[in-house]
Amino acid sequence: MKFNLTVNGRTAVVEAEPLEPLSTVLRDRLGLRGLKEGCCEGECGACTVLLDGAPVHACLTPGFQAEGRDITTIEGLGDGPGLLSGIQRAFVEVGAVQCGYCTPGMVMAAEGLLRANPDPDDAEIRHALAGNICRCTGYDSIVRAIATEAASRNRVSA
């Protein structure tokens, strides 16, 4: 079937199978390889993207259902070509990245959280990341990166 997808502000025509997951559509048909497919059953969160600003599993969302919605992937976060966004810089600066496989999903879950709750405490950050698994960092640095970015956004807007 054919449908339109608006990804990171650009619209593309896609031809895909009816139940083809959005993760496959984005990676294999649109070449957006930032998001990862990990478990493909909603446990690991590596495929997290924002749908109208809210985090979802791209692996469990049929591509066609994203038609008419705003899809944001990790590629769409940067402050310009080749530039990182604040949350990405925070992950780098705090050292919240080791092997990196979970990172795009973690960053998108974090971005979704900060859009919904600009001033989360540690418990709220951990709750928002419950759907994202990391086997390297032990999570503490990830929580710190998100808290750092939240504080910096609040400083800017204050």
């Binding site: 997951p21 909603g42 469990l60 066609f64």
Partner: peptide
């Protein structure tokens, strides 16, 4: 019928092959 798809799209589950997928 498909709403959120979080059960239907899980890897390894049998997916419908014919008929009408009603969003």
């Amino acid at each position: 019928f498909i709403a959120g798809g979080t059960d239907m799209l899980i890897a390894g589950r049998l997916r419908p092959k014919d008929g009408i997928l009603v969003d």
